[in-house]
Amino acid sequence: MRPLDRLSSIKVKLGVVIVATVAGTVVVLAIGFRLGLGLEARTAVAALIALAIVQFLARGMTSPLREMAAAASAMARGDYGRRVTASSRDEVGELARAFNAMAAELADVDRMRRDLVANVSHELRTPIGALQALLENLVDGVEPVDPTALRTALVQTERLGRLVAQLLDLSRLESGALALRPAPFPVRPMLEQATRECELGERYMSQPVWLRVDVQPGDLRATGDSERLHQVISNLLENAVRHSPTDGRIWLSAHAATDGVTTIEVADEGPGIPPEEAERVFERFHRTDSARAARDGGTGLGLAIARWIVDAHGGTIAVRPREPHGCRVVVELPR
């Protein structure tokens, strides 16, 4: 029971406790005097009554602090599920609510840390295991040292390199250490360069698709860090190629919207992304069922990095359905 929770100031609560204690003491002394009790007896009874009043009224003022101390000790041991009762409306109540919010954020951070360690371990284990098995076969003479075996080793090594590079990029983006260098730049050359690089990639070589670039107007310019935005487009194209059928079509387009926004869109003819997954695909290491089923499911970091870069530019990135089937990823940048 917290009788003073309705009061919105700790000062008012302290005043109420003091007044109630003094009033109780005076009443006890007066009653004791009328009953003919001695001064020492009246003083002892008044002190006990005063302590009882303080204990009753001040309980709700100090109990959140005790709960916070216990919860902080539990959090130091790794238990982030403890919460503090925050029914008071005063400063202590505000502190309790802030403490609960902090505990929830720490719990989310700890969960993300555990997921990151588990996901990175899983992603590293696959190429390392394949590379180790191949090298053991080469050393033991089970397989001959030929260009095919060496190319397989190179592919796995490149996959490890991409994963490490993406993890470093994501770490720099989240910490704010990756500074952007915004400047006006022409959009078409950047999109065409990303397309040429995509056509030279191993995934495109094994599963060629039709790539088309359309920019309206042709001399469209945008403002931003062209190198980082090129990274965004490359990630989107890589995803589109990965999930497109052989000889499928991918459209890379850009246009100037009437509200001062430059829109860049990558559309493919793949299986698409379910509406319930449209937001989660931008989480680190999250992949849809179709992505997991792909031969090279990627690392699950490309879209997370793309969102960080677009957000840092003050823009938005979203997944949209494409009729009759496929996926559209729309990037909007303020001009």
Score class of each variant (00 low, 15 high):
D219A: 09
V232L: 00
D247Y: 14
L220G: 05
Q216T: 15
L237V: 08
V241I: 15
L252P: 02
A257D: 13
T258V: 15
A240R: 02
P217Y: 07
R242K: 15
E227I: 07
I250M: 06
A256T: 01
R228P: 01
Q231E: 13
N235V: 09
N235Y: 10
T246R: 15
W210V: 11
D219H: 08
A222V: 02
L220T: 08
L211P: 00
L229K: 05
L211V: 03
L252Q: 08
T258E: 14
W210L: 11
R249Y: 05
P217G: 04
L252K: 00
N235K: 05
P245L: 11
L237R: 01
S253P: 01
A240V: 04
D225L: 05
A256K: 10
T246C: 09
D225V: 05
H243T: 09
P245I: 05
A256C: 00
P217I: 04
D214F: 02
S234Q: 14
T246H: 13
A257M: 13
L252G: 00
R228D: 03
A240Q: 04
R212C: 10
D214W: 01
L229T: 01
H243F: 14
R212N: 12
L237Q: 03
D225R: 07
L220W: 03
I233R: 04
I233S: 00
D219P: 07
D247F: 09
A240G: 07
I250K: 03
T223N: 14
L236S: 08
D247L: 11
G224F: 04
E227A: 14
W251M: 14
S234Y: 06
P217L: 11
R221M: 10
D214C: 03
V213F: 04
E227H: 09
D219T: 03
L236R: 04
G218N: 10
R242M: 10
G224K: 00
L252I: 15
D247E: 15
T223D: 13
T223P: 10
V241N: 06
V232N: 01
R212F: 02
A254S: 10
D247A: 13
N239E: 10
Q216K: 12
V232Q: 02
L252M: 07
L229S: 03
V215Y: 02
T258N: 13
G224Q: 07
P245G: 14
A254V: 06
T258W: 12
A240N: 06
D225P: 13
R249W: 12
P217E: 05
L236Q: 06
R242H: 09
A256G: 02
N239P: 07
Q216I: 13
L229Y: 06
D214V: 08
L236N: 05
E227S: 08
